[in-house]
């Protein structure tokens, strides 16, 4: 049986208390929400906090509040199942509900939280392996080693952004609140990440993610999430497209497309977005179809599929334009 390493367990009852415990213990500590990412990583010995701070007792981190028109706020400890089943979210943010519903499995979604999903560790099939396995490659840069086996001449780690909600939340312009020893802050989700497989978040040490803030729903924008994976359950995205289009009538006035599962952060498909802004985009219209297909082609270049996930990297890269086009079509009225 694969077992957890030994640790001391803390169970604060509020976010403030949790932050204090984390501050007391420094880098040896780590928060745990649903544990569906942290515990497997601990069993594989890629993360080995000796102080585990469980957030399950923090009632102030759970629940969905606010209104669609003003903006809905979701507590970090809200499970993916509750998010998926929440009637307000279903009505106001179907793309997010869809993205959550294609994460992992129903059992894992009963445990996993939105906060944990936002802070999901980057993945790589040289890294998501047992201690013994990694010993046979003399470890890698992300944990205990110095080479990146995906690109041995590269000075950086290319572990993959693998959360399903992140590309979408970046695209729609959602925000998060964090509290830490230095106080509270609220930032765009997109700013929570940076392009590095190891230091993939900008979250400061000891900072706790408390809430996710969704943008107001005013009928001017539509969003979509499209996921590529081998099986219709369990699997992480090997490509996850978040798309968001704002319209004035039939004309697209703003666009944001993020490519997940194909780089260390949700990569913006800037060129694609540029090509759509100012265009008339109507579902079923041949010209619009063509414009979307052409714009989606531009998603090929920024997609950085490497040989560290499921499926051939070359195919994943070729699939980016296809999936981007599909996500964009979903957004047409």
């Amino acid at each position: 049986m694969l077992r957890l390493p030994r640790f001391t367990y803390h169970r604060p009852t509020s976010a403030a208390e949790a932050v204090k415990i984390a501050a007391d213990h420094g880098p040896a500590s780590q928060y745990v929400a649903g544990g569906t990412d942290l515990y497997p990583n601990m069993k594989r010995r890629v993360q080995t906090p000796t102080e585990v701070i469980a957030l399950s007792g923090c009632a102030d981190l759970v629940g969905v509040s606010g209104s669609a028109a003003e903006g809905i706020t979701v507590g970090a400890m809200t499970t993916l199942t509750s998010l998926e089943k929440d009637p307000a979210l279903q009505a106001a943010h179907p793309a997010l509900v869809h993205a959550a519903s294609v994460i992992s499995t129903p059992l894992l979604r009963n445990m996993g939280t939105i906060g944990g999903n936002l802070l999901l560790d980057t993945r790589c099939n040289y890294y998501d392996q047992s201690h013994e396995w990694r010993e046979s490659i003399s470890f890698c840069m992300k944990c205990s080693g110095d080479t990146c086996w995906v690109a041995p001449s590269s000075p950086r780690c290319w572990a993959v952004q693998s959360s399903d909600t992140v590309p979408l939340l970046c695209a729609v312009g959602a925000e998060v609140s964090l509290i830490g020893p230095e106080g509270e802050r609220r930032i765009p989700v997109a700013d929570l990440y940076q392009d590095d497989g190891i230091a993939f978040t900008t979250k400061k040490p000891g900072e706790l993610l408390t809430h996710l803030h969704l943008p107001a729903v005013d009928g001017t924008w539509r969003a979509s999430y499209r996921k590529l994976r081998r099986r219709d359950t369990f699997d992480f995205p090997v490509l996850g497209i978040g798309a968001w289009l704002r319209f004035d009538g039939d004309v697209c006035t703003a666009a944001e497309i993020r490519i997940g599962g194909a780089g260390s952060y949700a990569i913006p498909a800037t060129k694609t977005a540029e090509l759509l802004i100012g265009e008339k985009l109507v579902a079923g219209d041949a010209a619009a179809e063509e414009r979307i297909t052409a714009a989606a082609q531009e998603a090929f270049k920024p997609t950085r599929a490497m040989d560290n996930t499921d499926h051939f990297a070359s195919w994943r890269k070729k699939m980016a334009p296809v999936f981007v086009a599909r996500a964009l079509r979903d957004c047409l009225g």
Binding site: N125, D128, Q129, W133, R230, R231, D232, T233, F234, D235, D310
Partner: peptide, 14 residues
């Protein structure tokens, strides 16, 4: 890929 997750087998969905 020596794991249940990455060694792909059909699930109830397939």
């Amino acid at each position: 890929i020596p794991s249940m997750l990455e060694y792909k087998t059909p699930t109830s969905m397939e």
